[in-house]
Structures are given as C-alpha cells and as structure tokens.
C-alpha cells in the first residue's frame, strides 16, 4: 500500500523540541444582544508532538471556542479575539494574514467535528470530497487524487473502499461518516489534529472503534491530538494531559492519572463524583448544585464559587489565578491544597 506522498521540503513549519502549539493568554468575547459574553478569559495550553491533550468541559465552558480559535474558524463577528497569542511552531497564527492561515489549515492543523453528516457536503461523493484535498493542496490530477482518496478510505477501515468512493455521505452509517471525516482531516498529514466531541453522536460500540482508530493514526503519524470532550470516560482512555475548563477559563491542568486519582479543583472533584461508573454498584451520585454562570454576567470572585461546597468569603471577592499546587499540577482555587489533600 502506498502512503500519501509528502514532499519534505514542503513542510516549512518545524516544531522546536517537539513543541507544536503554544496558546498564551487567549481572550475571546462574543457580542450578543444581552451584552458581552466573555467566552475565553486567558486560556493557556500547549501541545507536544505525539501527545494527547484533553480539554474537558461542559457546554458553554469555552472548550469548543478554544478549538475554533486555534483552527481559525471562529465567526468574527459576533466573536472578537481581544488578546493572546497562538504560536504554531513558534509563529503566532493571530498575526498571520488569511492567506497564510489557509496554508496552515489542513496541511498543518486540521479538525474533525461532532456531526459528520453536516460537516460533509451532501451533494458530492465522499471520495470526491477527500480527493479535493489532494487536488487543491497538492495539485494532483483527478485520477491520482481519487487513488489517494481510496487509500485513505482503506486506511480508516471503510470496507469496500474502492467501490464506495462514489457513494454520497447519506449512504454511510454514522460511524462510517466519522471515519470519512477523519480521512479528510489526516489527508494532508497534519501535525496537529483537533477532535471536537468526535464520538458524542455515536453509539458506544462505534465510539470504541473510532477512538481506537484515532489513537492508532496518532501513533503512526506522531500527531499532536487535542481532544475536546465532556466525556470523562473517553478522556481516561486516551489522554496524556487534561485541561479542565469552566466558564471560559482553565481551572485545572495536570497529567491524566493525577487528576482522576486526586483532583485539585472543587469543580473537577465534583465532576468526577457526579458521573455514574459502569464498574460501580450502589454508588451515590454527588451533584454539583446550581448552574454554570451566564457569561455576560459573571459573578465576582471565583466563577465557580456560587456552586462550590468549599467556598469562603475570599472566593466571592478574589478571582484565583491558575497556580502550581505541586510540581506539574495547576489549579485555579484559593484552597487547592486543601482540595488536593482531600
């Protein structure tokens, strides 16, 4: 089987010491009728070659906005990037022109979405859509591009790929469509793959297949993977490091084993205790009270304090910074040591 041919000189971006991506102090606002929603408030993440970073959060936490900002597909307006930098191999994407960013999107950083059906164009055959990537970015002719598309479809384990290149998206099952989207995303051999809730719409047996495939492809190509999800189970299975987001900021960052064994932020602690586990019987569910804050009217102090069982006076007045609790672990809580020690 031939793999996708890549001209090595075409890669003008080379990671330094394996560091692919550095997002620094990212601020994003949305201008809505209700006022200014501060969707991201100083988000810092980094990603190395071959590692998996999970960004964990509930709806409205800013996890998808982070992904869209890095990818450069945020709708501006209503969104507005008000500060920060996104360095890809040392170069700030936010300072680049649209032309230059287009050259990054696809060959360098690519993305898969939750809803494969709406991410694929319904009026073109899937093979044609994959081949398009090669024609536009690699300048291959029609039949070569289609050949490459077939190889990719085989790579993502679509049965009978050669016969199905001419099929349309609706003729595939949800899992197969997600495989096609993965094929498109990895077509140009990107260094960074962002997966935004890639298995949320899928059944559990299919989810296992897709996550397995993603892991395999990542190892094969040494991609950096950013997994955006709300599913603590999936994260535990694949992530190396986790950033937990709440109300547009990162509240905790650590290696995956540390967080599950011993969370250092009350929100993470609450989340872990609130999910029923398949391997537990007679488990009592802890429910975090209340609701996430409205981003247009953030409470003063720590954004989590109205729902926090550990909140004290300082929490309603001072917003805690994301600080190191013990080496390698960061938490944005005034009492993070207390949380960490149970």
């Amino acid at each position: 089987m031939t793999t996708v041919t890549t001209d090595p000189s075409a890669k003008q971006y080379r990671p330094e010491n394996g560091r692919l991506l550095d997002v620094e102090e990212l601020h994003v606002e949305f201008h809505t009728q209700e006022g200014v929603a501060r969707a991201l408030n100083g988000v810092n993440i980094y990603l190395d070659q071959g590692e998996t970073l999970a960004i964990l959060g509930e709806s409205g936490s800013g996890k998808s906005v982070t992904a869209q900002t890095v990818m450069g597909i945020l709708d501006i307006p209503p969104a507005k990037i008000t500060g920060g930098a996104i360095r890809y191999c040392g170069q700030d994407l936010l300072q680049m022109g649209e032309e230059q960013r287009r050259e990054i999107r696809g060959p360098e950083i690519s993305m898969i979405f939750q809803d494969a059906l709406s991410a694929l164009n319904p009026v073109f055959p899937v093979g044609w859509q994959i081949a398009e990537m090669f024609r536009v970015h690699r300048g291959l002719n029609k039949s070569d591009a289609l050949d490459q598309a077939v190889h990719l479809m085989e790579r993502v384990q679509i049965p009978g790929a050669r016969d199905r290149v001419k099929a349309y998206p609706h003729q595939f099952s949800g899992g197969m469509r997600q495989r096609i989207m993965i094929a498109m995303a990895i077509a140009l051999d990107p260094a960074v793959l962002i997966a935004d809730e890639p298995t949320t719409a899928l059944d559990v047996t299919v989810q296992a297949q897709i996550m397995g495939l993603l892991k395999e492809l990542q190892e094969e190509r040494q991609m950096g993977l950013i997994l955006i999800t709300h599913d603590l189970g999936v994260v535990a299975d694949v992530a190396d490091r986790i950033s937990v987001m709440y109300a547009g900021r990162i509240v905790e960052k650590a290696a995956v084993h540390d967080i599950y064994a011993n969370p250092a932020h009350p929100y993470t602690e609450g989340l872990l205790a609130s999910i029923p586990r398949l391997d537990r019987k007679g488990q009592e569910l802890y429910a975090i009270g209340g609701l996430p804050p409205n981003l247009t009217r953030m409470p003063p102090g720590c954004p989590f304090h109205p729902r926090c069982g550990r909140a004290r006076d300082i929490c309603s007045s001072d917003d805690p910074d994301l600080l190191e609790v013990v080496p390698g672990r960061l938490s944005a809580c005034h009492f993070s040591e207390e949380v960490l020690n149970g």
């Binding site: 559990v204 047996t205 989810q207 296992a208 996550m211 599913d231 603590l232 189970g233 999936v234 994260v235 535990a236 299975d237 992530a239 995956v256 084993h257 599950y260 064994a261 872990l272 999910i275 586990r277 398949l278 391997d279």
Partner: peptide, 13 residues
C-alpha cells in the same frame, strides 16, 4: 456493549 463503555479511570487503561 459492556466492554466498549469507557470507564473514567485511567488506571484501567
């Protein structure tokens, strides 16, 4: 089905 459900515990990975 049961074997495919991810368990939120990286120790079991």
């Amino acid at each position: 089905l049961l074997s495919a459900v991810p368990v939120p515990d990286p120790v079991l990975r």
